[in-house]
Design a binder for these strands. Structure first.
Lengths: 213, 213
DNA sequence: GGCACAATCCCATAAATATGTGATATTTAG
DNA sequence: CTAAATATCACATATTTATGGGATTGTGCC
């Protein structure tokens, strides 16, 4: 068994550490290490990597777009994301883009090698902190408890629901049999409570956080 | 630092292995090991565990119900599920019940100790195969086939995503570095394709049908 | 080569929205 | 009982949207 590893990491000292770390492992062969992934297509063709280590935060083309590019060309290659940040949206973006695993840089030294092996076996290794984020956000979706958090009144929610159906202010007014000015007032309050200033933002926030269904 | 560990595992030889494994670790103190979790309440009160290792497949009360019971009494205790099965529904049930991590038994010998440490730090350690299941099911939910159904172009989706962030036309234009008139045009086309005639309706349809996340 | 389509830009205008200020009646909570 | 919160309505106006035209460029396809 021989595993070809390709590395994209703009921090030079970290990149060198990765190379050093993997070079010591038998069976691992580093076919390339680069500070940016602009030349992805060529690399995929000529270096035939089995596993790609991809930093999220790369200059020029970021790691997320890098994964998308990879997936548009080849769906079999295993991609492990490396990052210092553990924010939910990056994680989701990376996973949706087609990443196979997600490692926080601080754990790399102790877990990179086993994680690469895991990913080769079809698993999705991820640092516990990342897994935690994912689990939390899954749980959130199922339970729309947030309604209380913003202290929306029941009438304000009525208006929001009607709005999200695509109703204009006038239609909302008819829908709830109140005047259009009352609708305006409710919406005004909703915007203040949600800290938004447009219909689009209000509706997407409400839907994403389960304030309305 | 002293970590109190409580173990529920009906397979006696595995249970003994767990005890042996953890006894060797300094700082770990096993406050109890039982083949079933029927006496959970008493154990929680008298043994004051920090971490509970819970087999999914227990006689009498299974591990999932065990976790629920634990969570109804104490939300702080860390619960690590142990299982031989990697089926999606058990994983989800356990996580929704409030489990903090999920380990396949075959990896226990090499990863149990670090996993316990991870969970104490607030992470959610899980075997890569489990993580894979979760990711796959998230992706399924998030991106149904719909994207193709309406034949939105990638640029139209870009605009829609930006809009759903709460951006005005002008901000979308800056975001995507195109002119505001181009934004208008894209939105016009999106509305035609989605059969809607307002931003609110477009955004809620897009979010609900998974066209955007 | 020609055709469909995606992506870009421009102009114009009626309609809708965001936001401020103000008011009144009813309900809720301290 | 009062104060705060809720629900209702009104008026004014600067911005933003929705929607109708029309145009150019590049790409993939037959």
């Amino acid at each position: 068994m021989d595993v070809n590893v390709l590395i994209y990491e703009d921090n030079e000292s970290l990149r060198n550490s990765l190379v050093a770390l993997l070079s010591r492992e038998k069976g691992f062969h580093i076919v390339g290490d680069y500070p940016e992934c602009t030349d992805l297509e060529n690399h995929l063709i000529h270096l035939s990597p089995d596993v790609i280590l991809m930093d999220i935060d790369l200059p020029e083309m970021n790691g997320i777009d890098g994964v998308k590019k990879i997936r548009s060309i080849n769906t079999m290659i295993h991609v492990l994301m490396l990052t210092v940040f553990d924010d939910t949206s990056s994680v989701y973006d990376a996973l949706y883009a087609g990443a196979n695993g997600y490692l926080l840089k601080k754990y790399i030294s102790t877990r990179l090698v086993t994680s690469i092996k895991d990913v080769l076996e079809g698993g999705s290794p991820m640092s516990p902190a990342i897994a935690r984020l994912i689990i939390d956000s899954i749980k959130q979706k199922g339970v729309p408890k947030s309604t209380l958090d913003y202290n929306l009144t029941s009438r304000e929610i009525d208006v929001l629901v009607s709005l999200a159906k695509g109703n204009s202010y006038k239609m909302v007014a008819d829908d709830l049999t109140i005047s259009i000015d009352t609708v305006r007032t409710h919406i005004k309050h909703v915007y203040e409570k949600l800290h938004v200033q447009s219909q689009g933002e209000a509706i997407s926030k409400a839907l994403r956080e389960g304030l309305i269904k």
